[in-house]
Design a protein around this nucleic acid. Sequence first.
DNA 1: CCGAATTGTTAGACATGTCTAACAATTTTA
DNA 2: TAAAATTGTTAGACATGTCTAACAATTCGG
Lengths: 165, 165
Amino acid sequence: MVKREAQREQTASMEDYLEAVAMLRGKGKVVRVSQISRKLKVTMPSVTSALRKLSEQELVEHERYGHIKLTPEGDKVARDVLRRHKALTRFFAQALGINQETAEEDACKIEHVISPLSLERMIKFIEFIQACPLEEPNFPKRYKYYLEHGQLPKECLERSVRRGK
Amino acid sequence: MVKREAQREQTASMEDYLEAVAMLRGKGKVVRVSQISRKLKVTMPSVTSALRKLSEQELVEHERYGHIKLTPEGDKVARDVLRRHKALTRFFAQALGINQETAEEDACKIEHVISPLSLERMIKFIEFIQACPLEEPNFPKRYKYYLEHGQLPKECLERSVRRGK
DNA sequence: CCGAATTGTTAGACATGTCTAACAATTTTA
DNA sequence: TAAAATTGTTAGACATGTCTAACAATTCGG
């Protein structure tokens, strides 16, 4: 069995910096310390300090006053954080009906601590309710009704009654 | 409008200590530093140090070599952490079908960072699928089938076909 | 009731990650 | 192009929370 390169576990902070670089890079242009600083709401010295550490681990390339880019390894880590971020955001927004802003905020925190299993299940959950709407009005619709009115939609109540529950 | 007592925000660590005291207290007996130490997997000096800080904030009562108990205020905080913990565990286990151990682990991390809104929605979600099984075989059953077999249960497929999807 | 084991505390080192102040480099603009 | 604004870095303080080593108090078993 091949021993896989031990991908060093990153702290929540370091994951945030890697993720920020990946996100900012997307928008054309060069990534700047000031942008990261604004995005993560930390001061520029904090960014410089973090980049130094990530450079030492060869996850980013960064030279004084120069460019900031992810190494292939750093890119791998950043992509994985982003994957978790997106899955969580989607789950909160689509499955739980949370507003986009709060969904993002929660995703930002939870992406650093959730287990691979739970994440996978959330992804599967979304896949499921999208692929299998169950009926019209479907599950998400009914759930939305329940959230908005504080009581079960009439179809559910009818069923309960019919089943003598 | 009455200005509510600003309940000091606690760090994840301090919440863990308060939660641990509340949990251990449940099992009869006096709460001991060594128990907290074992439960949270930290050394005893770490516990002593944390208890000192929480004492200063009047969230616990603790005198050298003596008893450890929550003040009414500390109890309030601890109960809220426990509430989040339980809701999350339940959500992971019952809604997502995660095993109890992983559900607990994830709850332990996420309880410190989740927004009140998302938590509330998770609670509502569980209430909903419990109260409104939708049909036989109901939603959780179908979802379980999907997880186990990697494909939609036949009822869903039939529906999709019928709807020409 | 006394010695051993356990429990708990203190002191202080250390890691992480933040900040402010001061200064340096770069970029913008008048 | 020179001054001003912006951007970035360094140095060092600080907060949090962990640990080990050493010692002190308490509890337990014979």
